[in-house]
C-alpha cells in the first residue's frame, strides 16, 4: 500500500490560517489501512482544527467526509455539488488524491494533510516500512525478491557496500542491510551464483527520472 503520515499539526494549522470553511476529506484506500487518513483520522483532525480555532477565538466550519478513494473520478465526482462552498479542501489522502482533487476541481484550494512516504508493508501493528520504489523496471527476479532500489540506502545493484556490518546498514543500526538479506536468502535458495553476475546499469528513463509516467491499456479503454 501507499504509506502516509499526518503532517505536524502546526504545519496544517498554518496552511489553513484564515480559512473559514474547510472540508477535511479522508480516503478509504491505503491511508485508512495505514491509519493516516481514514474516517477516524478525519474526525480527529477536524476536532483538532476546531479546538485550535476555539482557542484563538476564530470561527471555523469544518466538515468531514471520507470517500471510497480519492484516486478515482467515480468517487471524486461525488463532491461536485458541494465542493464550491469550501474555502479549501484538506485532503487526508496520499499525494495522489490531493493531485487528482486539484486536477478535477480547478477552483478548489487543495491542501495536503499528510506526508506521503512510501510503498510499504505493515510489519506489525503501528510499524510500516518501505519495500518498493516504483522504479518502473522490476529486477526482483535477480535479487531474491528483495529490492535494492527501495531498500539499499545507496540503491546499489551489486552490493553490499563496505559499510554493511552485522547485517545493518552503515547509515543506521535500525536499518537492515538489504544486501545482507539478499545474500542470506540466495544462499538459502542455493542461488548464490546469481550474485556473481554484474548487474547492468539501470534504465531510469522508466522511473520518475524519465518524466511523469502513464499507462494506457487499449484493451480496457471504453
Amino acid at each position: 500500500m501507499i504509506v502516509a503520515e499526518r503532517k505536524p499539526i502546526k504545519e496544517i494549522i498554518s496552511m489553513i490560517n484564515g480559512l473559514r470553511k474547510i472540508l477535511v476529506l479522508g480516503c478509504k484506500g491505503c491511508v485508512t489501512v495505514c491509519s493516516a487518513g481514514g474516517e477516524r483520522e478525519v474526525e480527529i483532525l477536524a476536532t483538532i482544527i476546531r479546538m485550535d480555532r476555539k482557542k484563538k477565538g476564530e470561527p471555523v466550519e469544518v466538515m468531514e467526509r471520507t470517500l471510497v478513494r480519492q484516486c478515482d473520478p467515480e468517487y471524486l465526482d461525488l463532491l461536485s455539488d458541494s465542493i464550491g462552498q469550501f474555502d479549501a479542501v484538506l485532503s487526508m489522502a496520499c499525494g495522489v488524491g490531493v493531485n487528482f482533487l486539484a486536477d478535477r476541481y480547478p477552483k478548489t484550494v487543495a491542501l495536503p494533510a499528510l506526508n506521503t512516504k512510501f510503498y510499504g508493508v505493515a510489519e506489525e501493528q503501528g510499524v510500516w516500512s518501505e519495500r518498493c520504489a516504483g522504479c518502473g523496471d522490476c529486477i526482483l527476479n535477480l535479487t531474491g525478491g528483495l529490492c535494492p532500489v527501495a531498500r539499499c540506502s545507496k540503491g546499489l545493484f551489486n552490493g553490499p557496500c563496505g559499510g554493511s556490518v552485522n547485517g545493518k546498514c552503515e547509515i543506521s543500526p535500525d536499518i537492515p542491510c538489504v544486501w545482507q538479506l539478499i545474500y542470506d536468502r540466495l544462499k538459502g535458495l542455493n542461488q548464490l551464483d546469481k550474485l556473481d553476475e554484474v548487474l547492468p546499469v539501470k534504465d531510469w528513463g522508466v522511473s520518475p527520472h524519465g518524466g511523469p509516467r502513464k499507462i494506457v491499456r487499449e484493451d480496457l479503454k471504453i
Binding site: 540503491g155 551489486n158 557496500c161 531510469w204
Partner: peptide
C-alpha cells in the same frame, strides 16, 4: 560508492546513485 550523504555536512542532499561503483568500473 561513497559514504552516504547522511553522514556529511549536507545530510538532506539528494543522493544520485545513478550507477554503482562496480558499474562505474565497467
Amino acid at each position: 560508492s561513497g559514504d552516504h550523504q547522511k553522514f556529511g555536512n549536507h545530510p538532506s542532499a539528494k543522493g544520485v546513485y545513478d550507477i554503482d561503483s562496480i558499474q562505474l568500473i565497467q
